[in-house]
């Protein structure tokens, strides 16, 4: 019996210790999260006069779009852009996406190939969004059996 009591006491003390640690952890975590979201501790500084300048957060800048181009990847702005950025530029560059122009059927075949051989994950509902973005923004061009020469940069050829 004595041993059982002793054991119970030990369990209680461990329980107390764990609870204290947990409470400390929650407080610290809350503090850290708060600091991350408000590093200047502005909440404790009272109200400030509204500034003329709008603060641009780093997160916004990371996926900044300028003139219809997602700057980080070079992809065109459009419905489904972020699904493409998040699913299609982890392993390879967006350059590989943009230089390929395929129809829906061939994009899906390409996705299957990447899933079978290149460790691409199941895209779920995003697959339709991604394929729609690709065929809308990077549609195939008809080139025929041989294109004319374009973008010739003319120069005087000296002897």
């Amino acid at each position: 019996m004595e041993g059982k009591e002793k054991f119970k006491a030990q369990v209680r003390s461990i329980y107390r210790l764990l609870t204290t640690l947990m409470v400390l952890f929650v407080i610290t975590a809350f503090g850290v999260i708060y600091l991350l979201s408000d590093p200047t501790l502005s909440l404790f500084k009272g109200k400030q006069a509204p500034s003329e300048y709008v603060e641009v957060t780093a997160e916004d800048d990371f996926d900044k779009i300028e003139n219809g181009i997602h700057l980080r990847t070079g992809l065109k702005e459009g419905e489904g852009l972020m699904a493409v950025v998040n699913n299609c530029t982890n392993c390879h560059s967006a350059l590989l996406v943009m230089q390929n122009r395929m129809n829906e059927e061939r994009w899906i075949a390409t996705i299957r190939w990447m899933q079978e051989t290149q460790n691409l994950w199941d895209l779920g509902k995003n697959e339709e969004i991604i394929v729609k973005y690709l065929v809308t923004n990077y549609p195939p061009k008809n080139k025929g059996r041989r294109e004319i020469l374009t973008d010739i940069q003319w120069y005087e050829l000296e002897d």
Binding site: E59, F62, L71, G74, D151
Partner: peptide, 21 residues
């Protein structure tokens, strides 16, 4: 991990590169 470094730089629009011009 520091997205701020992207702030100052304008990244290329890659379409220019792949067409070789």
């Amino acid at each position: 991990g520091d997205p701020a470094r992207f702030r100052a730089r304008k990244l290329p629009t890659y379409g220019q590169m792949s067409n070789g011009k």
